[in-house]
Design a protein around this nucleic acid. Structure first.
Lengths: 213, 213
DNA sequence: CAAAAATAATGAGCTTACTCATTTTTCTAT
DNA sequence: ATAGAAAAATGAGTAAGCTCATTATTTTTG
């Protein structure tokens, strides 16, 4: 891990970043994103108000910083939950339901995150979001690939396109859920219906059914 | 049109709203959303600074107000452009390319709009966005329905699910385009690939091809 | 028509994210 | 070890979105 390789300066920066991130995480969870001021975060982290902005260009940046790691965990949990299902469609639904569960635990924060994902300003932020996306669609692609072995998906189908399309469906309906267009039951129904359609396109030609549920 | 039915108070409100919306539209187009202050809008509209906020709860609300009508026009143009194509897939691509063209004319503004669509705060705003969505997916559903006659789409396929799924794909990739994850060429390629997959799921069972482009 | 009630407009003031000139800390070279 | 350079931290200051107590306008009532 090359721990000793950190210079004093690097060590300080690392510690300070960790303190700021931890303080922000605690405050966001406790009083919500909008109600938390950058001054409070600075106080809790033991730094001056201006220091925040050498670690995050904007308050919104903090949101991405804080939740990047947490999201990676959620995606991993989602993968495990998906594997408990035998069929691809149910795997995909379980996968995204786990992520939706996570967001439903703190809706205002999830809304703030969603907003942020729709307006990425810095290159750093874009890199973090890209990493999350790749991780997520990578897991999906693996599930789809495995379904090729069971004959549920035709071998010729492109994995990345399929994974991306499933994610697109989820992304739209998560937006609906977070912005009050859908309740959770409607969200799940929409996900199921749309996934069924997409998976019909993935199925081998001879197995295609003429009726979509 | 029941023009005479407007009371003096309603007439005043209507006029003032129109002045504010027009001023905001001009200023956003001229110097961009972020660079335009609510004070400038108020001055240009000939009202006090506080008056803005009796017509729009936030500056972001103004964005929705201003562009709602414009968007309806764009969707109508998109519909006409789509009808010039014979096949459903190309119709869908043409449809969304028209909308993407519109957004590309003013990327910063489109980004601000996209951000706003991901964080709807007031009921009024939600109603405006819902109306737009319904209009858009309604046109798509009509195109899909027409494709049933040509045999491109199986008669049993659910229109709203299909339209919604196409929109989901577009929505994700527009996000990618506006946030710099995709350039325009990548956007169109992604749209084409994903639409091809979705339409494979819509196709009649016997016509399904084993290879997706 | 006058008084009272309801609605709308006003703009000074507040809050808070963010900036930037200055100061402090750390690193490097001799 | 010390001077000088580079990087980081600081916090007072700024700007702008938004609030709200007050004022003005319109409608309703008697």
């Amino acid at each position: 891990m090359a721990v000793a390789a950190l210079s004093r300066r690097e060590q300080n920066k690392h510690d300070k970043r960790a303190r700021i991130t931890a303080a922000a995480r605690a405050l966001f969870a406790h009083k919500g994103f909008a109600a938390t001021t950058t001054q409070e975060i600075a106080d809790a982290a033991g730094v001056a108000a201006g220091t925040i902005f050498t670690y995050a260009r904007t308050k919104d940046d903090l949101l991405i910083l804080v939740f990047h790691d947490e999201m990676l965990d959620v995606v991993e949990r989602a993968r495990k939950r998906a594997l408990q299902q035998p069929r691809l469609r149910d795997q995909a639904i379980a996968f995204f339901n786990e992520i939706a569960d996570y967001h439903e635990r703190d809706l205002p924060l999830a809304r703030a995150l969603m907003r942020q994902l729709s307006y990425v300003e810095s290159t750093d932020q874009r890199a973090l979001v890209s990493q999350l996306m790749r991780r997520l669609t990578g897991h999906l692609a693996k599930l789809i690939d495995a379904a090729k072995a069971t004959g549920e998906v035709a071998a010729s189908r492109p994995l990345t396109v399929a994974a991306r399309t499933l994610f697109a469906v989820y992304f739209l309906h998560l937006n609906g859920l977070l912005n009050g267009y859908l309740d959770r039951a409607q969200f799940e129904r929409a996900l199921t219906a749309d996934f069924t359609l997409v998976l019909a396109g993935l199925a081998p030609a001879r197995a295609a059914k003429s009726k979509i549920q």
